[in-house]
Simulated assay, not measured.
Amino acid sequence: MRALTVTPGTPGSLQVAELPDPEPRAGELLVEGLAVGVCGTDREIVRAEYGWAPPGHDRLVLGHESLGRVRTAPEGSGFSTGDLVVGVVRRPDPVPCGACARGEFDNCRNGRYTERGIKEIDGYAAELWCVEADYAVTLDPRLEHVGVLMEPTTVVAKAWEQVWRVGERAWYEPERALVTGAGPIGLLAAMIGVQRGLDVHVLDLVTDGPKPRLVEQLGATYHHRGVDEVAGELQPDVVVEATGVGRLVFSAMRNTASFGVVCLTGVSPAGRKIQVDAAGVNREMVLENDVVVGSVNANLRHYRQAAEALARADLDWLGGLITRRVPLESFADAFEARPDDVKVAITLDGGR
């Protein structure tokens, strides 16, 4: 079989390699790969900034945003040949910590978790892959052409779950949400916000291309003015921050309604300094009972929430998020950013 592999820590090592077909172990599904999504984490691994190969190996099979079709499944697993599935990214640490022992491995306390296509386990960018039945989730068959959006949707499903858990520490009935950033995470966060019945606003820099149109088609409102101006006018009850830009983070924190919840999903680059009125931020957060929470990764509960959210979504709208599909043999094109890119997917089945 063919697989997209990289030597972590070695720039320029991305290549398609011929590997032996995998043999499923007890309790595993054998899956035909359909597609993988490309995200910032994948690009960091390719740039040798991140990533770990499996123990005893030099190369890592890339790909954590999976989509595949079951070829074989163990009897009694709940899966059948032909099922559309995705594989969960993270695995609990072997100790395990208290969170991992209770299925909350997205909140691993000791950092000894592993991740498919990222940290010490081969990923899903292969024509065939195996996955434990306990770490696979089925998708509605109608999602065959957009199901590669499942993993990023799990990230925002968790973010919204965390927002609600924080908000429900007291009476909670939010009305307005601001999403900063109109990439895949931001747009999918906006989608779930709309599904929850909120008045959703999305802020991004661009004035043309697919992003404003996608926001409008969602029934949300698109903004491209400064964050202080937009957030100051809106006074959102919820902010989902999906850029990781430090200035936006602190502007969002200072411009929520009372009892506001800010959920940070974007990862900021280290080493960049900004001037912040820390005392002012502290004063507003304390006096208004505001909360800022970080959210990353997802557990099985979030995968199921994401599958439900995608099944309720408009298929044409979801299809508009995937702005390019690149065949495996042209993998390099998938890592070259283009101005109108939202989500780029690599097809593993010849584009069928």
Rank of each mutant, 00 (worst) to 15 (best):
L4P: 06
T5K: 12
A17T: 14
L19R: 15
L19K: 13
E23W: 06
G27M: 03
V31M: 05
L34M: 03
R43P: 00
E44T: 00
E44A: 13
E44L: 07
I45M: 01
V46I: 14
R47S: 07
W52P: 00
H57M: 09
G68A: 06
R69Q: 07
A73S: 09
S80H: 12
L84F: 08
V85Y: 06
P94I: 01
E104K: 11
Y113K: 00
E120A: 15
I121S: 01
Y124T: 15
W129G: 01
T138M: 13
T153P: 03
V155H: 01
W160P: 02
W171Q: 12
P174R: 06
T180F: 01
L198I: 08
Q217M: 12
G219C: 04
G219T: 05
T221Y: 09
Y222W: 15
D237M: 03
D237K: 06
V239Q: 06
T243W: 05
G246Y: 08
V249Y: 13
A252Q: 07
N255M: 04
F259Y: 14
L264A: 05
A278I: 14
A279D: 10
M285P: 00
E288D: 12
A306F: 11
A309C: 11
A309S: 15
A309L: 05
G319S: 13
R324V: 04
R338A: 11
V342K: 03
D349E: 07
D349L: 08
R352C: 01
